[in-house]
């Protein structure tokens, strides 16, 4: 694989690290199976792309995309905690609705950003030949800031309250934690991060596309699960680190798989590989358990025999 391809994979991996951090909050911390991501990722992209194309400041556009994602997450949470719609169903409703919303925002199925001023433009202007190097560097800084900010938040009083909400809501309420409010805030935070990823994605890819969100949640989950397998650990700092690394490893793995001509995989096989990978990662823990159980059963049998 060439250096450029490697940096390209790193760049997308860093963007999906933000998605993974968002998925970590919903699926792992709040225990809220949330598929809004497939809508909030392109929502962030659509809002940012539309504003940038309209000549607005790219940072402001990115911020607007992020806030829009937060509102999407808030809507999903609201459907669940106020209207008692099942978590998964609530998120699917919002995801579907966002497809129309995104089309409305862009006014067309896609919005090119060729030559537009993005958040990366000022940095690229300093070293015009090294765009492929500078974009991942800027993204890395953003990801590190996001990771550290989340670590700090989840160590705070409110952050701990949010973790308790996901881990044991009844206990949380008995301690005076407004669990409904925690779910609303947490889901907003989660989808804001995912939309931020979308807003940055369109600026690296030269435009937004209505179908860019397909499979976002699966990739985010893949990153979280791969990360947990690579560096298991129950502290927040390790969990966020694992999510970021999981996203990077996942994208590198995909790039390698697509690059290895002898396997014969092509870009259109991406979703199939992802689904297979996530499916495998999901059953891995139960396979491990089964093997461990069988082993301990046979040890017991052996000791029983020895005793006899």
């Amino acid at each position: 694989m060439s250096l450029i391809a490697l940096l390209g994979a790193t760049e997308i991996g860093l963007i999906f690290a933000l998605v993974a951090l968002g998925v970590l909050i919903s699926f792992r911390i709040l225990n809220f199976p949330d598929l809004t991501a497939d809508g909030s990722f392109p929502l962030g992209g659509a809002v940012a792309a539309t504003l940038i194309a309209g000549g607005h400041d790219p940072w402001l556009a990115t911020l607007a995309g992020t806030v829009a994602g937060g509102l999407a997450g808030l809507t999903t949470a609201w459907l669940n905690v106020r209207l008692n719609i099942l978590q998964l169903l609530a998120s699917i409703l919002v995801m579907i609705a966002l497809y129309s919303v995104n089309l409305r925002i862009m006014g067309a199925p896609n919005m090119p950003l060729i030559g537009a001023t993005t958040v990366f433009s000022p940095f690229i202007a300093q070293a015009p030949d090294s765009q492929y190097l500078i974009q991942p560097m800027v993204l890395a800084v953003i990801v590190v800031i996001a990771k550290l900010a989340l670590d700090a938040f989840f160590a705070s009083q409110a952050g701990l309250a949010m973790r308790a909400t996901g881990a044991n809501p009844r206990m949380a309420r008995s301690q005076g934690i407004p669990t409904d409010r925690m779910v609303l805030i947490g889901m907003a935070l989660s989808n804001a991060l995912i939309a931020l990823a979308g807003a940055l994605y369109v600026q690296t890819q030269g435009g937004a596309d209505i179908s860019m969100g397909i499979g976002t949640i699966v990739v985010g989950l893949a990153a979280v699960i791969i990360g947990e397998t690579l560096i298991p650990g129950r502290t927040i700092m390790i969990a966020t680190l694992a999510a970021v690394l999981g996203a990077l490893v996942y994208r590198l793995f995909i790039a390698l798989a697509l690059n290895a001509d002898f396997i014969g995989l092509q870009a259109q096989d991406l979703n199939l590989i992802t689904a297979a990978l996530v499916g495998f990662a999901l059953v891995l823990p139960s396979i491990k358990r089964k093997i461990a159980a069988r082993r301990s059963a046979s040890t017991k049998r052996n000791t029983a025999n020895d005793a006899r």
Binding site: A155, S156, Q157, A158, G159, L160, Q175, G176
Partner: peptide, 12 residues
């Protein structure tokens, strides 16, 4: 912090 408002201050 039972029954108290929880803010952004460190919990420990």
């Amino acid at each position: 912090q039972r029954g108290e408002k929880r803010g952004l201050r460190g919990s420990l």
